[in-house]
Simulated assay, not measured.
Amino acid sequence: NELMKRLMEQGLKEQGDQNRPFAYGFKIILHDAGKTETPAEETAPVAEPAEPSSEGTIEPIAEMYTTDDDVTVAVDLPGVDKENIHLSLINGTLTIIAGTSQLTSVEIPTVDADSMQSNYKHGVLEVKFSRGKPIRID
């Protein structure tokens, strides 16, 4: 606990403004090379790396922000080259693959897939979708 406290204090000092919020994180998933994983229920196919490494994968933190007009997903991907980021939207699930060991999926509400815009800056990927225009019935 003391080490974590010192690291947090150091991070706040390096950040400059101690009142400015920040969050960094990821989840590490370890795979047992001799054990196959069986999903609890069958879901829509999601793009995954061909072979999970015995070292595991990293699941970056993804946050979704919604408004009446837009849906934005923000993902922390520090140190990843833009060319190594791949996105797919299948059956309402946005899947982000970064490099060979980072994978995350986010279920998003109904959006206009053709409206997707992405921006990768300072290690943060933002993917924005328009919810589309409501259909007016006369």
Rank of each mutant, 00 (worst) to 15 (best):
N19M: 01
L87T: 01
K128L: 01
K5P: 00
N1T: 15
D81W: 04
H31W: 05
D17F: 01
G132E: 02
E48A: 15
P109Q: 09
R131L: 03
A74V: 02
D76Y: 14
S105L: 01
L103C: 04
S130P: 07
D17S: 01
P134V: 14
A44V: 13
A47K: 15
F26A: 15
M4A: 10
E41T: 09
N19C: 00
I135L: 12
R136E: 13
E37L: 15
S115K: 07
R6D: 12
G56T: 03
P60I: 04
L94C: 04
E2M: 15
D69P: 01
P21M: 13
K5S: 13
I135W: 04
P52I: 01
D17Q: 07
S101Q: 07
V80T: 09
I29H: 11
S88N: 02
G92C: 09
E14K: 02
N91W: 00
L77S: 04
H122M: 13
P134W: 08
T38Q: 15
S105N: 08
V46D: 04
R20I: 03
K35M: 15
S88Q: 09
V80R: 14
V124S: 12
E41G: 07
R136A: 09
T93A: 08
G34W: 03
T43R: 14
S53K: 14
K82D: 01
V127N: 02
G34F: 07
E55K: 15
N84Y: 05
T36N: 14
H122E: 13
I58Q: 12
I137F: 07
G25N: 10
S53I: 00
D114E: 08
A62I: 04
F26K: 10
P45I: 00
G123Q: 00
V124D: 08
L3Y: 11
S88E: 06
G34M: 11
E83I: 08
G34A: 08
E126D: 10
S118P: 00
E51C: 06
I96D: 08
G11R: 14
E126W: 02
G25Q: 11
Q117C: 03
E59C: 05
E42V: 08
H122L: 07
K27P: 01
N1H: 03
V75R: 15
V46W: 03
A62Q: 02
N19A: 05
S115I: 01
G123A: 11
D68L: 09
